[in-house]
Amino acid sequence: MIDPREDVITERLKNVSRIIAVSSGKGGVGKSLVATTLTLELARRGYKVGLFDLDFTSPSTHLILGVKDAQPKEEKGIVPPIVNGLAYMTLVYYSGNQAAPLRGKDISNALIELLSVTQWGKLDFLIIDMPPGISDAVLDLVRLVKRIEFLIVTTSSLLAFETVKKQVSLLRDLKVPIIGIVENMKMNSAQTIERETEKIGVKFLTGIPFDSTLEEALGDVTKLCNTAIANKIIQIVEKTLLS
């Protein structure tokens, strides 16, 4: 017996110019925040963008975006609704506010299902918010989406950077392009991570300061785009993604 779904994924994504996974070996480093802000900033510049929350067990982009009652449309598949100017897809549409206790195999299955039925249409960028770590979701995405590129997030802590180094070497083994590394929640101006990043031959994208007012901007995209974080994300957009 053959699972037919994988054979249609390339077709589903054929009109998406760039597909970028925002990822980290470590949890809680700001992947969801970076992915969401990045997508919003691209949308503000007039690009057609999508955001896909692949953190099925602990989704959070819907909270960052302040999504209320959006639902996908059914049309030869699933068409993601446009939320704050971006085509937005999350498992939350289906799991609601229930917990989604999924094991690796279920995560792969849900990921394959959504990739095979979601009709993204024509997009300049599809940004994917990844769950933490370098297991199922990363491996499946690399296997199924041939054009995937990774943007990696770390904090200033060596504990985070060590897992990021392992992720970099995994992605290199898999021959997946790495756009660069973002250092998030910086508490001082130390350049250790920047130097270490360059040492492993990866581009250092930017350092984002810890912003104690961020919490008030969650759920309000206008506020979010006015934070110091958004300012730094704009640098990535302008200096790296659009240049």
């Binding site: 053959i2 699972d3 037919p4 779904r5 994988e6 054979d7 249609v8 077709e11 059914e74 049309e75 030869k76 598949g77 699933i78 095979s116 039925v117 009709q119």
Partner: peptide
Amino acid sequence: MHEWALAEAVIAAAE
């Protein structure tokens, strides 16, 4: 009509 997407997958795999 989400069945349409599944049918497309079946055809692609069968082809």
